[in-house]
Amino acid sequence: MNNLHLVDLTSGEVKMEPIRKGFGRGLLEAGKINDQVVALCADLTGSTQISLFAEAFPERFIEVGVAEQNLVTVAAGLAAMGKIPFTSSYAAFSPGRNWEQFKTTACINNQPVKIVGSHAGLYTGPDGATHQMLEDIALMRCLPNNVVVVPCDSVEAEKATLALAADKRPGYIRLARDSSAVLTTDKTPFEIGKAQVFSEGSDVTIVACGTMVYQALQAAEQLFLDGIDAEVINMSTIKPFDAVTLIQSARKTGAVITVEEAQINGGLGSAVAEALGEEFPVPLKRMGVKDRFGESGTADELLNHFGLTSSHIAIQAHAIVKNK
């Protein structure tokens, strides 16, 4: 089907791993490659997986305590001196609490401060609405100079972390807490700003990011049995946005669905709608959390509650293909 060296999800058991684990490995590797890489954490060293780096390079690790505003502004000072700082906390607090500081000191200064937003989205689970960051994609996507990456699995997160460490711009990487399926392999290419067609099809395009890429691929399997040939795009970089790959696919299929475990306003779906609306309008269905806050539950329960499972995607695909 393609040469992306993806995991064959139809054979045997799918490996599950939290996306944040891949970040932890990637940062450790980035630290080995470049001694200018430094890490800062706001009292969540273990759960954000920055602990791997902290243990390997204690002299390049800074614990700022529960102080997210300080987290990014101290990082901005480090970046001004040539360092490449990765700052980690829960996405609900960073960028949730320090957006202006990040805008002013990282983005206007245009320097490589990286925000690592762990525990983003519904995969945060039982912690509930306060800790399920659903607005981060919208918040980070509107900032000039900023790069926004939402890796689809732990393996891609590792590569994305290395890519961000080598990138001179400010950046945001969105990570999930609970285990999710591993779809990609070490050989799967990753490039900032480049979307990838994970599954080719001609009837409908499903654009997804993060954990939703797996749901989209599952939906495509299901749809194939129903006689619908769905194309699945992993839009792992939200900014800069790869409109070329999107439009190419939309020209072929004539219908697009977007799926994200984030607020439907301002996120991936909005980015897709903006690009299609201006360049190649086709029927579009945006799937995400519909202008509501999250709540406690397991990831599976929440995906079901908010209508974001593969079955929900398949239903929407049927509807959009029927009305094309």
């Binding site: 502004t73 000072g77 480090l78 040539g82 002013t104």
Partner: peptide, 20 residues
């Protein structure tokens, strides 16, 4: 040395520079 205006961020950046 840095962009400023929104208040309260300078001392943190000085700290980051000193750490570097």
């Amino acid at each position: 040395e840095t962009t400023s205006g929104p208040l309260g961020c300078g001392l943190s950046q000085a700290a980051g520079m000193a750490l570097a």
